[in-house]
Structure formats: structure tokens, C-alpha cells
Simulated scan of single mutants.
Amino acid sequence: MSNVMFYLLDETQEKLQQPAHFALACLLASRSYRQKQKCIVYCQDQIQAESFDELLWQLPNDAFVPHNLAGEGPVGGAPVEICWQTPTQFNRPILINLSDTVPAFHQKFRQVIDFVPALEALKAQARERYKQYRAVGNQLDTLPASSINETQNHG
């Protein structure tokens, strides 16, 4: 059983260049790295994975997060691994889900992070994922996305 945390985004966070949940996922991957916890960022497809990879490269130098696309980088992967296919190793405690579906392998992770975007079509997909996570017995929680910035500023 996994703990699944859904972050609720609002309209103000959706006005950025990239999807707001991508920006939030960058922040969460960065926080995971700083807490010495490896994570996997699971994307819908290779294009989305490469976009997310690019976003991590755009972080300021003092916020750099060692990361790689699955199959690249050091043996065992960097602290943050970005994939769009089922990972080959499950030696990481955190899964950040950017795909539209519940990853079949999500229960191999202690913590799953998912998002509820403000856009109505994406919100409907998030509701479906919530139901699917709950149906297989996961512990579910929700938090406003704004709480990340608050904890980031105080941490």
C-alpha cells in the first residue's frame, strides 16, 4: 500500500508557460533530492519526459537537481530519474506521477505524488486517478499546491 498525496492547483498557478503541475513537480523533485530521497518522475510519453528534463535544467545553479532520463546517466540512475515506461528498478521511495493514468507499478513506492490541475478536463482525469488509487487500498491525502511554497520558505 502506498501513501498518495494529491496537490490541488488553482487558476493562478495555471497561467505559467508550462503546466503548473510540472513546475510543482520540479519543486517536489528538488525537495526530495535535498532530503536525500531518490524519486522517479513518471511521464505520459517521451516528449513529456524530455520537457520535464528541460525544466529541471532551467532551475537556478544553486537549486540544481542531479537527474537523468531513464537509461541515461550513472548506473542506478541519478537521484531524480525521469521515465515514461515501467522502471527497471524500484529502489526509490517516491513516485511523482505526471501521466494521465495511474501507473500500474505505483504500489512499489512508499509515497506517490499526483496532481489535480485547475483545468476542468485535467481535473476530471485526476478524479478518476483518485478513485483508482482508493480502489486498490492506498492511503489518500490532498493538499493545496500553495502549501508547498509555504513549507519551502520555512524549511
Rank of each mutant, 00 (worst) to 15 (best):
H67Y: 12
K15S: 08
M5N: 12
Q48T: 02
M5W: 07
R129Q: 08
L56N: 05
G71L: 08
Q139M: 07
I94M: 09
L16V: 12
D141C: 11
A118Y: 04
P144M: 06
T88I: 05
I148V: 15
N61R: 13
N3P: 05
Q18P: 00
Q35V: 07
Y42P: 03
Q18M: 11
Q46N: 11
L27V: 04
H154W: 05
C43W: 02
V102H: 06
Q37P: 12
G137S: 03
G76T: 04
W57I: 05
D114S: 06
I113H: 02
P117S: 00
P79F: 13
L8V: 12
V102Y: 02
F90G: 13
D114E: 07
D45N: 15
G71A: 08
A121K: 15
Q46T: 03
D114V: 02
G76V: 01
V136M: 09
L28Y: 02
V80Q: 10
R127A: 07
N91S: 13
G73F: 00
C26I: 02
K15F: 00
M1P: 12
L122S: 14
N138I: 05
L143M: 13
S32D: 05
Q46R: 11
I113E: 00
T142L: 02
Q46E: 15
Q152K: 11
W57A: 08
S2W: 04
H21R: 00
N61H: 13
L98A: 04
D53Y: 03
S30Y: 10
R34I: 07
V65S: 13
E54G: 09
K38D: 12
D100V: 05
A20D: 10
E11D: 10
V102P: 09
I96M: 00
I96F: 01
A23S: 15
E54H: 12
I40S: 01
N97H: 00
I96V: 05
S32C: 10
S51D: 14
G77Y: 11
W84F: 05
K15R: 06
Y130T: 12
T151M: 11
Q18D: 14
Q139W: 08
E150P: 08
